[in-house]
Design a protein around this nucleic acid. Structure first.
Lengths: 148, 148
DNA sequence: TATTATCAATTTACTAGTAAACTGATGTTA
DNA sequence: TAACATCAGTTTACTAGTAAATTGATAATA
């Protein structure tokens, strides 16, 4: 029987707990813009890539089609985005209201998110961490569940 | 106006997407034990710390009291844990069934989770990553939302 | 002893994720 | 042209998280 705690599984725990906690803080922070962290994340991606198809957006956010659909319905209802049907694909763009909101929220939220790293890591450490996380994240996208 | 993408915010995206993806894979993997990743996580913590109070467990998992309550109700219904009320605190322990399940699932799940790191990082890199994530995660627990 | 305060746990109403079944417009083929 | 296949998007039923209101047993106090 293998060891119960490998170094890797301890890393996993640290990462998972950090993301949990960090999302709690971001949700609290973004209350001032009447947004959740998930909504900010979606609007920020649309801001960069618009116009973008619903599928591509789901893939960029590592989220299921169903989840994407419901989230966009909500954002559309609040007049932050529009969906234009072209052929059988829906293209997502920001409305003026959505663009104004994300442009206002982005600098503050980026700074808040960055502070979680900037307050404890120096430049060299941040570059190291970015390199390591890039490797792992790309690998996770290719990886599949064994013996399904 | 500050830059839209700092190195730190790119790190954040990598970490968040990795956790999302990694949870998807773990959920798929744990189907064979009729468990979700969240349930595994709770049972594993109880296994280490039992008997543990419901509050301490919530804190260790970075989860709200309400969420903890509902999760434990579910696990109790499946006869995997027991709650013993002592004074006004509830102490959580595994049942024999719960202990058998987690002992069977743990080695496989630990190995699967570890493989996400082991397949792309060497020992030195893993130690670096563990050190960096420990700093960040501890910091996030102390950090609070500014200007609430 | 009756009232009140305390505080862990629960409940409620919500957001946000999943898998899997369904929808519906567009092409393809018999 | 009628039947079928395709496939992005939607819907449904579920797990799991949150904040905030509620519950209920214990301890403190009038």
């Amino acid at each position: 029987m293998m060891e119960q705690h490998t170094l890797s599984s301890l890393i996993w725990l640290r990462i998972a707990r950090f993301v949990q906690r960090s999302n709690q803080l971001s949700n609290e922070f973004l209350e001032r813009y009447d947004m959740t962290a998930a909504q900010f994340d979606v609007l920020a991606q649309i801001h960069i890539y618009e116009p973008i198809t619903q599928m591509d957006l789901a893939e960029k956010l590592t989220v299921s089609r169903g989840g994407m659909s419901r989230m966009l319905t909500r954002l559309e209802k609040e007049r932050l985005i529009v969906r234009k049907q072209d052929w059988k694909i829906k293209y997502i763009s920001l409305t003026d209201k959505g663009r104004a909101l994300i442009q206002k929220a982005m600098p503050e939220q980026t700074e808040f998110q960055s502070s979680m790293f900037d307050e404890v890591l120096n430049e060299v450490e941040k570059k190291q961490l970015y390199m390591l996380m890039t490797k792992i994240q790309k690998h996770s996208l290719e990886k599949e569940c064994p013996q399904k």
